[in-house]
Amino acid sequence: MSVQQTTLGQVRTRQAGMTFLSRISTEAVLMLGAIIMVMPFLWMLSTAFKTPAEILSWPPRLIPGSPTLDNFATVFTTAPFDRWLLNSLILATTSTVAILLTSAIAGYVLAKFDFPGRYALFMIILATAIVPFEVYMLPLYLSARRLGLINTLPGIIAPFLIMSFGIFFIRQNVIASIPDDLIEAGRIDGASELWIFGRVIMPLLTGPLSALGIFAFMQAWNQFVWPSLITNSKNLYTAEVGLALFQTGFTVNFGAVSAGSVVSVAPILIVFFLLRKQIIEGVALSGLKG
């Protein structure tokens, strides 16, 4: 009896020790991984504030010895970075507004209206959603050229006016959260369809629409391939394109390149830190709906 009790006790102690040990090691692995994930950002930030001499000094240090703003001055005096940021902002804002409008109306109509051609339209949106942008960007470029949209802001923005996923996302939300009776009640009261959409439906969709809006904004801000194809005049570059070409002229000036990176990434990171919870939850939601 007593022998058995000791063993049980020993097992329990060992288990408690194990859980404590595994908890500590789990924490250590997570922390180490997380530090590796943010290291490139810290490095970029630190380099942006270093003097040229310190950047090239060996061994490198994470905290700048004598912080300087010279690199940021170089960025704004040698390149129209303010203009590039403005272009990115115009692209992202216009794209977001357009995607919200088109997704809301199309998502609502596809969810609540039964009309001839509904299924065909749904299939068109689904089928084109699978095709990556890179596959059809050449003909898109040719169309833009024919319409005289090369080197114009509308040309940069045009491909980002709709988002297939946005339409599906709103459609799902309407189906899940808006009862038919609500729409019927409006109709019985004699309200027009447009009024019902604008005054009854839209206010109920603020949650999903703001999640979608954050995505649309970040997606547009991060675009690179299309803006780089359709622009060749410095004043029309977005922050992404401008930075990519800016760095080719400053191969050895890591300070200026890092400062430029910090400037172009700052707006999107501010949005991320302000809306961190919604963004991560949004990905969790959308990813599973694919």
Binding site: I35, P40, W221, F224, L243, Q247, S261, V265
Partner: peptide, 28 residues
Amino acid sequence: YETMYFLPVVTSMVPATLAWKWILDAQY
């Protein structure tokens, strides 16, 4: 942790790549 691991996802590709380009630089 979630924030730290998610940070690279929201970062645009050009600055993210530039940060790495510097880290991977053969000389410095």
